[in-house]
Amino acid sequence: MKQLLKLAVLSASVLMAGSAMAEETASAAAKADVTIAKGTDITIAKGKVGQAPVQVVYDYLVDRISDENGLADYQTLQINQKSPKAEDYQNVTLEVIKSGLADDSVATQRYRFVMNFTDDTHVWQIKSVKQEWQCRRGNSKAWTQKPCK
């Protein structure tokens, strides 16, 4: 039941962005990021056989996306998945963007994941996770590597 509720919340909240968002994100990605976790030869988190990248990321962020009742303190949850090349389906970057936050200092929060699919285990793995914020004060369009005050 809990998994069904998670998928229902995720399905209701996910917005698909077009290529314009991907280009805007790529230019913002050139700036410094806060690395939550990074693996070199190790994996930060693995999914289960049959899970899509979005499901693996949702499981990883579940306590940051909603509370134990499935409630959240943001207006919009946007998830964007992109492959580096049209035919490279085993490597993706995935962004989770929370906007319309109830926080009076943070307007938007973003998590950026680098993931790959392994042929030997047949699961998606998270290789790195980065976190950035857009603050309500100052340059509200710029992403920052430091939490807003």
Rank of each mutant, 00 (worst) to 15 (best):
I79L: 12
T118C: 10
V57K: 02
N91L: 07
A102F: 12
K82R: 11
N80I: 06
S19D: 02
V96G: 12
W143R: 00
A22F: 06
V56G: 00
G39Y: 07
K127Q: 12
K82S: 14
S128R: 13
L101S: 10
A26I: 04
S140T: 13
Q51N: 03
K46P: 02
L7F: 05
D73N: 13
T118V: 12
S83M: 07
A30L: 09
D67T: 07
I126H: 02
L61R: 11
K85N: 15
W143L: 01
V123E: 05
D63W: 01
D59H: 05
T144N: 14
M1L: 12
K149C: 02
G39V: 06
N139Q: 09
K146M: 08
E95Y: 07
T118N: 15
G100D: 13
A86P: 04
Q3T: 03
Y74G: 02
V62L: 11
F113S: 03
L71Y: 05
Q55R: 09
A107C: 06
Q3V: 00
L61D: 10
Q75Y: 02
I65K: 01
E68T: 13
Q90R: 02
S66K: 07
K149A: 14
S99M: 03
L71F: 06
I126W: 04
D104W: 14
W133I: 02
G39H: 07
I65Q: 01
L71N: 08
N139V: 09
A37N: 06
R137W: 11
R110C: 08
T35D: 09
K141E: 15
N80V: 05
V56Y: 00
L101N: 09
E68P: 10
Y60I: 01
A37G: 08
W133H: 03
K82C: 04
D67N: 15
D33N: 09
K130S: 11
S27P: 00
M21E: 13
K48C: 00
D73R: 08
Q125D: 09
A52T: 12
T76I: 13
Y58D: 15
G39D: 04
A45W: 03
Q145A: 13
S27A: 09
V9R: 14
S83L: 04
R110N: 03
A30D: 06
E23R: 09
D119F: 14
S66D: 06
A142G: 03
T40Q: 06
Q109W: 08
Q125M: 12
Y111T: 01
H122Y: 07
R112P: 02
E68W: 15
F113P: 01
Y58K: 05
G138P: 13
H122T: 03
V106G: 14
D104C: 11
Y111D: 01
K98C: 05
K149N: 08
E24G: 10
L4W: 06
I126R: 00
I65L: 15
V92P: 00
D59Y: 07
V62M: 09
R112K: 11
Q78C: 02
